[in-house]
Amino acid sequence: MISVSSATKRYGDFAALDDVSIDVEPGSLTALLGPSGSGKSTLLRVIAGLEEPDAGAVVLEGRDVTYVHPQQRGVGFVFQHYAAFKHLTVRDNVAFGLQIRKRPKAEIAAKVDELLEVVGLSGFQRRYPSQLSGGQRQRMALARALAVEPKVLLLDEPFGALDANVRAELRAWLRRLHDEVHVTTVLVTHDQEEAMELADRIVLLNHGRVEQVGAPRELYDAPASDFVMGFLGPVARVQGGLVRPHDVAVLVEPDGDGAVEAQGRRGRHRLPAAAGTGVQRRVTQDSGSSASGCSSAGRLPAARSASVTCSTTPRRLERTAIHTCCSGAALPA
């Protein structure tokens, strides 16, 4: 259980954390998500004790550790750029925390071998970090952090420096690892996909404040603000309101004058005809009727119309076209 209450951290005029309070359930995998400069890394470092908050408190498993040195917090920390001990072999890197704790040599050797097995690095014991790939280095760093059996595992953009394939692979692997080991884990990421895929809960931060906390689905389906909605997936602005591309679908064939109607989950849109390609069309929202059973109680305001630029003729205006239109982000109102 991690509990941060009213944490505030300022660097000069810049408020990295502005009265932030979060609770992390034991055994959960929580993602701190937000754009850069939102304070997510600072929050993680405050939990680890690598930064001291100007105000507020950090409680780990019932113990107030706000001013406790990181060496006594019992947390495992994994850095974006691995922070591998360059002068030590893989084995000695992983063994470091146990050697500090003066465990018997045989126990250390067994534990290191076991952990390297878990992270898929058995056989790499004698290598130096410079002889490993980025993904391998990060797995070594994870083994090193897990070796001391931390109460809490903190990961600061752990996959941020890796290329896309390795990132996806390690993400899935981390999720499996967490399901096996069940150590309370907090992960910092700016990648909403990573947060959605990995986390049980997401804490979305912006400008040093918590925007919303909840399960990934909750944040996606019931965003508390435009910022949350915009951060968790592609959106288009229609008449001052935000819509997701999949919230809009074309249901009917073009009628006599070439106009089509788009049926969204949150309303009905009429797309009147105009000649040629690349033309201006109007998206008319009729949130009053919901004949086909679609909810109109969405976030889209009951606006009458909005302009959409489409590069397709009315007859070919289909679901995908609308997707394309709306994914084009800022549509002029």
Partner: peptide, 23 residues
């Protein structure tokens, strides 16, 4: 020198002196 190496050592339980000596 990578400052994060030192932070990693601290989080693994190493004191300032140990970190200096061993890292």
């Amino acid at each position: 020198l990578d400052r994060e190496m030192e932070e990693a050592a601290h989080s693994l339980g190493a004191s300032a002196t140990t970190t200096f000596r061993r890292i």
